[in-house]
C-alpha cells in the first residue's frame, strides 16, 4: 500500500493544482496576519475559511482525482496488488497531499509570526486538526460517490450537492427547525444535530476552544457544558473518526465488487 500511496503522492506533488492550493493558504495566512496584526484574530477569521473550504476542496479533488486516474487504476488492477490496497493507497495519497498543503501553507506564515512562542498555538493546532479531519472525511465521501457513479458528470454533481447539503442546507434546515419547534426545549436536539454533521461539529469544536462561545448565547452554554467535558471531547472525536472510517470501509467493500 505504501507504494501506491507514494505513487499518488508523487503524482499529486507534481500537479499544478496542489501548488495553487498550497499557495492559496500561504497567501491567505500572510494576508490575514498582515491585516489583523494578531495571531488570535487571524485564527478566528480562518475558522470560516477552513470549515467551508477544506470540505469543498476535498470533495472536488476527490471526485476529479478518481475519474482522472481511472485508466491508471485499471493498469494497477492488472498488477499483482490487492484491490483494497490500490484504493486505500490512492485515498491516503490524496488526503495526505491535500492536508499537507493546508498544514504547510498555513504553518509557514504563522510560524514566521511566532505562533510557536504564543499562547494561541493550541487554538491553531486544533484548527489544523479540524481541517485535517474535514479533508479526510470529504475525500472519502467523494470517492464513495465516484465509485458508485460511472458517469462523471453525475458523480461530480452528486458530490457538489453533498457538500452543499452538509455545508449550507443542513444549517438552514437546522435553523428552520429551531424556529418551528420554538416552544419546545431544543438544546439536546440541537446538540444532537450539530454532532451529526462533521462540518458543524468541527466548527463548534474550534469555536469553543477559542473561548468565544459567549457569542452562542444560551445554546452555547449547553454546548459548553457538553463539549467542555472529557466525555464531550471524546464523543466528538469518536464521531469525526467514524465519519472517516465508515466511508473508507464502504470504499473497500464497493471496490471489491466493482467491475472495471
Amino acid at each position: 500500500m505504501i507504494r501506491i500511496l507514494k505513487f499518488s503522492f508523487a503524482d499529486l506533488a507534481r500537479s499544478r493544482w496542489s501548488y495553487i492550493y498550497f499557495a492559496f493558504y500561504l497567501v491567505l495566512g500572510f494576508t490575514l496576519l498582515f491585516l489583523n496584526e494578531s495571531l488570535g484574530k487571524a485564527i478566528v477569521t480562518l475558522i470560516n475559511v477552513i470549515i467551508v473550504l477544506t470540505p469543498l476542496i476535498g470533495t472536488m479533488f476527490g471526485t476529479m482525482y478518481y475519474y482522472n486516474s481511472k485508466e491508471f487504476t485499471e493498469l494497477l488492477l492488472a498488477q499483482p496488488v490487492k484491490r483494497s490496497t490500490i484504493f486505500l493507497g490512492q485515498y491516503l495519497g490524496l488526503s495526505l497531499s491535500l492536508s499537507g498543503s493546508l498544514v504547510v501553507g498555513l504553518g509557514i506564515p504563522f510560524f514566521v509570526y511566532g505562533i510557536t512562542k504564543s499562547g494561541e498555538i493550541w487554538d491553531f493546532g486544533l484548527l489544523l486538526v479540524a481541517g485535517f479531519f474535514l479533508t479526510f472525511i470529504f475525500v472519502a465521501l467523494s470517492f464513495n460517490i465516484a465509485l458508485s457513479n460511472e458517469n462523471r458528470i453525475k458523480g461530480f454533481g452528486y458530490s457538489i450537492l453533498m457538500w452543499l447539503f452538509l455545508a449550507v442546507i443542513y444549517d438552514g434546515l437546522f435553523l428552520l427547525s429551531l424556529m418551528v419547534f420554538n416552544d419546545y426545549p431544543l438544546d439536546k436536539a440541537s446538540l444532537f444535530a450539530t454532532v451529526l454533521n462533521p462540518i458543524d461539529l468541527a466548527r463548534i469544536l474550534v469555536l469553543l476552544k477559542l473561548d468565544i462561545s459567549a457569542l452562542l448565547g444560551y445554546t452555547g452554554a449547553v454546548f459548553r457544558k457538553f463539549f467542555g467535558t472529557q466525555l464531550g471531547l471524546v464523543t466528538s472525536f469518536t464521531i469525526l473518526i467514524l465519519w472517516v472510517v465508515l466511508p473508507v470501509l464502504r470504499i473497500v467493500r464497493k471496490a471489491k465488487k466493482k467491475d472495471f
Partner: peptide, 25 residues
C-alpha cells in the same frame, strides 16, 4: 497485460512510471 487504452498519471515521467510499476512486482 496490455490494456486497450493506455492512460497514465499525467504528471509522471516515462522513467518514473516504469520504475513504479517495477516496484509492484
Amino acid at each position: 497485460y496490455l490494456p486497450q487504452i493506455a492512460n497514465f498519471p499525467a504528471n509522471m515521467s516515462v522513467k518514473e512510471l516504469i520504475e513504479s510499476v517495477k516496484g509492484l512486482r
